[in-house]
Computed example of a mutant assay.
Amino acid sequence: MREHFFWGGFMKKTQIFISLFAFVTFILLSTNLYADSAESVVTEGHSHEDVKRGERFFKGLLPFDREYSSCVSCHNLNRVDTLNWNPSAMDIAIKYADKDFESFQSSVMNPVGIKMEASHVNFDISEEDLKTVKVYLDNLAHTGVPPAKPTHYNLILFLFLGLLITWAVVELIFIRKIKLKFIPLIILLGAFGWQVKMIVTDAIKLGRQENYAPDQPIKFSHKVHAGENGIDCMYCHTTAEQSKSAGIPATDLCMNCHILIREGTNSGKFEIAKVVDAAENGHSIEWKRIHNLPDHVYFSHAVHVGSGKLDCMQCHGPVEEMDIMQQHSDLSMGWCVNCHRDTEVDFGNNGYYEHYVKLHEEMKSGAIDSVKAVDIGANDCMRCHY
């Protein structure tokens, strides 16, 4: 009787635990599920149906018999991994939000520029339908693109592994119904080991952002500028040899070239027009920083580039091949320490290292044939943390 009472109570508690787990999982998966259901604010004088109809035309769902490419095939709504040279839907929406329909219609139906003319060839849409597209874009400029919904798969997996661990412990200590004891033991060790692996992996990633490539306010391609056109890094990043930071080029520096070059082979006029507008109106272009270090770490470009004579790609990777600039290395302490151990210093003909008299004498006598960064204190803790 006591065993039956214990078993019944345990099963009831287990059912409650599983139900609670399923409820939490449902809540996590449905986060932001209804975020898009709230009615957005539409342009004055137009209905929600006008917005939806314009959205269908923009996405190519209407008309059914169209023979031209849809708007969204060139002007993406969501972020993509490769560089889409065409302006995004949000870019267009913001540009024409305060302009009348005639300006928008002229730009679409009578495009100016080689790139845009080629993209809009055979584009045919009635005036009434194009008006709904303008309504949709005006609304998009107001509401913005819906944010990407977060995923919770790792959390759900972690909770599921916890459930397996709980079952295995209860089975081994209390229930003891399974004759082959190694089965729950294997499940216990496997689930616990996987949880530890998940924790360690995520802990190591804290503060690191390898491959980080945020959307920039202007689609600037290092592949075009540094690769195809061969512009030297120091032409734009003028303070890399003398300052802690490599610096972001001023808009006036961009205009040294773009005072004449107003249309790109790939991007057309839209992106370059942003640079010209910023220069003419005195606006700052708010570039997003890609390479970030923790606050307790000191790093100087002047020491590495100016004194150490390191090439930019040693840390930043093949920048001349990147359309979308991203963080190439993880910039972890281990990565820096290993670099200091492996990198030979330009020691012989570098005035910065003249005061290392003993090392110079050893090199002249042949006692050593090279000097690594670690040999001159690069891995001393206080060099980076003070």
Rank of each mutant, 00 (worst) to 15 (best):
M1Y: 09
F5A: 15
F6L: 15
M11R: 13
K12R: 09
T14P: 01
I18S: 11
I18H: 03
A22I: 15
A22F: 08
T25Q: 04
T25G: 11
T31K: 09
A35K: 12
A35E: 09
A35L: 07
S37M: 08
A38C: 05
A38G: 09
E39N: 10
S40L: 11
H48W: 03
H48C: 03
E49Y: 06
D50N: 13
D50V: 02
G60R: 04
P63K: 06
F64N: 11
R66E: 04
E67M: 10
E67H: 15
C71K: 02
L77S: 07
N78A: 14
N84K: 11
N86S: 15
A89K: 03
A93S: 15
K95G: 02
F101K: 04
E102V: 10
E102A: 14
E102Q: 13
S103T: 14
F104L: 01
Q105I: 00
K115F: 10
S119M: 13
V121E: 13
L130R: 07
K134N: 12
D138V: 01
A141M: 02
P147E: 10
P147A: 06
P150F: 01
H152I: 05
Y153W: 14
L155V: 14
F160E: 06
A168Q: 02
V170R: 02
F182H: 11
I187G: 05
G193Q: 04
G193M: 03
Q195H: 04
V196A: 14
K205T: 08
L206Q: 13
L206W: 12
D215L: 13
I218K: 08
F220G: 01
S221Y: 03
V224Q: 12
V224L: 12
Y235D: 12
H237Q: 07
T239Y: 00
S243W: 00
A246F: 01
G247F: 00
P249A: 03
M255S: 04
I261P: 00
E263H: 02
N266E: 14
S267R: 06
A279P: 00
E286C: 00
K288C: 02
N292W: 07
H296P: 00
V297P: 00
V297S: 00
H301T: 13
A302V: 04
K309D: 10
P318M: 07
E320C: 03
I324Q: 08
W335I: 03
H340V: 01
Y356T: 02
M363Q: 07
M363H: 06
K372A: 01
D375S: 08
A378D: 03
M382W: 08
